[in-house]
Simulated scan of single mutants.
Amino acid sequence: MLLVKNADVYAPESIGKKNILISSDKIIYLSSKIDFPDKNFPEIKVLDGDGLTAVPGIIDLHMHINGAGGEGGFTSRTPEMSLTDFTTNGITTCVGLLGTDGITRSMGSLIAKANALQIEGITTYCWTGCYEVPTRTLTDTVRSDIVMVDKIIGAGEIAISDHRSSYPSYQNLIHLASETRVGGLISGKCGILHLHVGDGKDGLKTLFDVIDHSEIPFENLLPTHVNRNSLLIKESMEYVKMGGFVDITTGIKNEGDSAVSAWELYIDMMQEGFSPYNITMSSDSGGSMPLFDDKGKITKLTVGFPNTDIRTIKSLIEKGMPLELSLIPLTSSPANLLKLKNKGHIKEGFDADILLLDKNFNIVYVISKGKIMVDNYKASIYGSFENK
């Protein structure tokens, strides 16, 4: 058992100073006062949360956990991520995916990596597929992947408006979205079609066509990287106004022609009066982030880092955004959209995924599934083959 005492709790809404009692991997009691019998009571480890802020663990729905890349040749393939890449940056739940390369990276290796990270201490899920359509799967279809494989919750990232995509028509995407939706209905999962959106001139046109020509609900479609250029920013605003959901990439910065940082677009969306529960954020970490010129030649190749999530939260707070609103796109919003029933909130009966932050919003402690993964600013549990 673990007791976090006297922390200022944002669940993500502010609920004041609380004691958080954890048994195994669950939060079992939240109270402003807690007393225990002097005798015959199980031993409890106590963390002093006085002066610290407790928030839900970060949920990152777009991470290349087993590496990605390759657009610059075999030497540009990015390495697999390690446990402390997640924990030291406050990520207690993630969704892994393939991306551009569905040839040298496979669904089998992705599932294996997700299982390894789960054993090491965080919660993991996966999208099935890669950029191309028809896409790569573990079983014979996307639908059966979602129904039969516990880790798989939907399909993605399927590329549109990108020179690396297979240029699927809206009819192709309607079929694929139907497959993911029905798979989700049968299995009780979110059944989302997660779309990579590139810098192409079509922007979100294919997605708007899917909405116009089908009965696929908005909650089964999630485009990402919408802050990468001015066209996508404008169209994503229109899409959310219609009732759609979008994912903003924290790893994208104010660079290139018209890309904007995640915090900047999120503030603009809040000023438009949009619900924060129509917006999620993710890092795209572990994946390569190539920049191409107008002839399709790589001019720059970088890697996405998981620290951009917590940095975005800090940036939002620095710009005057309330802490609760700053947390929602990386905690309760993805939990709700992905149907992760016991995630994204600090509540009794929910998974004990908690960050304790200091007054500067630096991570002091990370608790994942009830275990202390980061202790006094430093990793306390390491993954296989990590240097301690």
Rank of each mutant, 00 (worst) to 15 (best):
N227M: 05
G251F: 01
V246K: 13
V226Y: 10
H213C: 00
G203R: 10
L221R: 09
V197N: 08
K205G: 06
T224V: 13
D199S: 15
L176R: 09
I211W: 13
L195Q: 08
I192H: 07
G251Y: 01
N227A: 05
F245L: 10
L195F: 12
K189L: 00
T250E: 06
S261C: 06
I233S: 13
H194Q: 08
T250Q: 05
T249Y: 03
G251Q: 09
F245Y: 15
T180C: 15
V226W: 09
G251D: 11
G244E: 11
P223R: 08
E235W: 12
I192G: 07
L185W: 04
G188I: 01
V260Q: 10
F245N: 15
M242G: 10
A177E: 06
S187Y: 00
G203F: 02
M237H: 14
K234H: 14
E235S: 14
G184P: 06
K241Q: 14
D199G: 15
D209Y: 01
G184V: 03
D209I: 00
D257K: 14
E179H: 00
L207D: 08
G203W: 09
L222H: 06
M242A: 13
D199L: 14
S236T: 15
G243T: 11
N220V: 08
E215L: 11
E179Y: 00
T224W: 10
E179A: 07
L204F: 06
